[in-house]
Amino acid sequence: MALNNAKDTDILLQPVNDNLFHWQGLIKGPPETSFEKGWFKLDFQIDQNYPINPPKAKFITRIFHPNIHFETGEICLDILKPQHWSPAWTLESLCRAIVNLLVNPNADSPLNCDCGNQIRAGDMLAYRTMAYMYTVEFACEESKEEAEMILMQRKLQE
C-alpha cells in the first residue's frame, strides 16, 4: 500500500484484516511530553464517501488527555468534523494532527473533564503526572510491542 510512508517511523498505518474501510494506526508518543514512552493505537472507520467525508477516528489505547474521552477514546479535533474536514487530509496527515494535539492540549473544549480541569486550574504537574502514569499503564506494553514488530518487519523487507 502506498498509503504508508516508509520513512515515517512514528506513524504506522495499516488496514485491519485487509479491509480498506477499516484502518489501524499506531502513533508514537511525541518527545518531551508525558506520552513520550508510549505507543497509542487508533481506529479509523472510513465510509463510501471518504475522502469527501471525514473518517471516524478514536483511540483504542487508553490515554489521559483533555481532548480525548477517557472511556470511549473519542477525539475532539475540529478537522474530524464534517464542516471542518478537508479531502486534502490523508489518514497520515490526520495522525500527524493527532500527534500535534498530544503536544498541544486544548483545555477549553475538554472531553475528559478531570484532565481539562487540572490544566484550566494551571496544575500542569498533576496533569503531566497522571498522563505519564496512564501512558506507563496502558501504552507501553501491547501497543508498543505491536509497533516494534511492524517496524522490525519493515526493516527485514528492505
Binding site: 468534523k81 475538554p110 472531553l111 473533564c113 480541569n117 486550574a121
Partner: peptide, 20 residues
C-alpha cells in the same frame, strides 16, 4: 464548565451533536 462533572460534560457533548 470548570466544575462540570464528566456526566454533565458527556451530556453537553450529546446536545452539541443533536444540534449539529
Amino acid at each position: 464548565r470548570v466544575t462540570m462533572t464528566q456526566e454533565q460534560l458527556d451530556e453537553f457533548q450529546t446536545q452539541i451533536k443533536l444540534n449539529e
